[in-house]
Amino acid sequence: MDKKTNSLSSFISRFRVLIQAVATIVTNLHLPNFFKGEIHQGRTKMVCVPGLNCYSCPGAAGSCPIGAFQAVVGSSGFNFSYYISGILILFGVLLGRFICGFLCPFGWFQELLYKIPTKKLSTKRFEALRYLKYIILLVMVVALPVLVTNSLGMGDPWFCKYLCPQGILEGAIPLALVSDGIRSALGALFTWKAFLLGLVVLLSVVFYRSFCKWLCPLGAFYALFNKISLLEMNVNKGRCISCGKCVRACKMDVDVTKHPNHAECIRCGMCIKACPTDAVRFNYGFGKRRKSI
C-alpha cells in the first residue's frame, strides 16, 4: 500500500473549517455595523461574493449573486443580467462547487448545526429532491421576477422574498436586535421566513447540508459547472485499493471513484482525508495541462 503523502489537496481538506471561517469573515467584514443596526453602503457592494450571503447582512462587504440577479431582472430596465451571469460563469468555471464546500457562509452554518450530537439520517433515499433546486433556480430566480411585474414593470425577488432563510438569519435578526424601527415593521412575511429558517435549522441538525442539497439555487448553478470546472476531483486508479472509505466518508452521497465530478460534489475533501493511499486529489488547470495538487 502506498503511504499517505502531504499533498496540497490533503492540506486544504484538513484546514477546511478554518478556510470556511475566514471566508465568512471576509464576506462580512463590516462587523461594527452589527452594533449600529445599519448595512455597509460602499461601492464594494457592486461586486458579488461567491457564496450565499445576504446583502442586507450588516457586515456584508459585497452582494449576494442570487439577490443581485433578481434585483437586475426585476428592475424595469432589464429582463436578464449579463453582469451577474458573467460573474457566476467565472466563479463556476474557476472553482465550481468548491465554493459551496469552502466559501459559502450558509453552507458552513449548516455544517456547524450538523455537528450537534444527535441521531443523523441519510439523504440517499431523498435523491429526487436534488432536482428541486434547479426548479427553484429557473422559476423563482430567473422567470418569476421577469414575468410577474407591477404597473411600473418591476418584479419581486421571489427567492429572496419567499424562500431564502439567509435573509432572516443574516439580515432580519441582527438588524431587528438593535433597531426598533426594523423590529416594529416585521410582519407575516418575516414569520413565514423565520418558520422556514427554523425548518432548515432542524433539518440541518439531522441531515447534512439539506438546504444545499435540495433548495439552494446558487448551488444548482455551480453544479452545472462541476464537470467542466478548472478545479476537479481526480482518483488515481493506480493508487486506489477499492477500500470504499471515500464513498463512506462522502456526506453528499457521491461515489468519487465512479463520478469524480458529480454535480452534487461540493469538493469538501472528505474523500481526500479518508483515502489511506492518497489516491484522491484535487486537480486544477485546463484540459490535459491540469495538475494534481
Binding site: A172, A185, L189, A194
Partner: peptide, 9 residues
Amino acid sequence: ICLECVGIG
C-alpha cells in the same frame, strides 16, 4: 436594506 429579504416587503 432589502425589505423583501428581511421579511418586511
